[in-house]
């Protein structure tokens, strides 16, 4: 059986990179991997989604609706857009951040509360805040990577540089805190 992941975000947030890191980590563990990327027109400022599947034997490169074990959203409005991919019992992990879409204003707290109520298996992770603490919003995807690696049982991918490794460890720590709070 393959693990199916959908990663949602806004162009420029490093969605593709996050997907590649997860893929590399899975490959290093000896799994087969498929990452379905979307390039081109939607690259900047638009919604971006990337599908990652890994397992002993994987064929299909994309995840269907109601087919994802895990939906990762690097932004809260994109988490709403990713809902349709969640399979019954699937897990949703959201970076605690809103990037305002054109023409509408979302309050972060309201969106997050609504999501928590309607999908109990949700983790809200302050990746953005943690990344700023590490010096740049650019690290929010590596903080997220550290968090979801614990959920997926995957190691740190081999290609992370030093600063991204620090962000990865921060993400791991956030997971341990979230897990402790769950108990």
């Amino acid at each position: 059986m393959a693990t199916s992941i959908v990663i949602m975000g806004v162009g420029g947030q490093g969605v593709l990179t996050l997907a590649r890191w997860i893929g590399e980590a899975a490959l290093a563990e000896g799994y087969d991997v498929r990452i379905a990327e979307i390039h081109g027109m939607s690259q900047r400022g638009g919604s971006v989604e990337v599908h990652v599947r890994f397992g002993r034997e994987v064929y299909a490169p994309i995840v269907e609706e109601a087919g994802a074990d895990l939906v990762i959203a690097l932004e809260a409005v994109e988490a709403l857009r990713g809902f349709r991919y969640l399979k019954p019992g699937g897990v949703l992990v959201i970076n605690k951040r809103v990037i305002q879409p054109p023409g509408r204003w979302y309050e972060l707290g309201e969106v997050v509360d609504a999501i928590r109520k309607s999908w109990p298996k949700t983790y809200i992770v302050p990746c953005y805040e943690a990344a700023l603490g590490l010096g740049s919003a650019l690290y929010e995807n590596s903080v997220m990577l550290g968090f979801v690696s614990q959920l997926l049982g995957l190691p740190m991918p081999p290609s992370l540089d030093e600063r991204n490794q620090a962000a990865f460890r921060k993400g791991m720590q956030l997971f341990q805190e979230a897990a402790a709070a769950d108990q």
Partner: peptide, 21 residues
């Protein structure tokens, strides 16, 4: 009989691709 896709609690506003800043 596949599972139906869940609906989000709030409709996400479209985020079409836009010219870069």
């Amino acid at each position: 009989d596949p599972p139906q896709p869940p609906k989000p609690p709030v409709e996400p506003a479209p985020r079409p691709p836009a010219l870069c800043p």
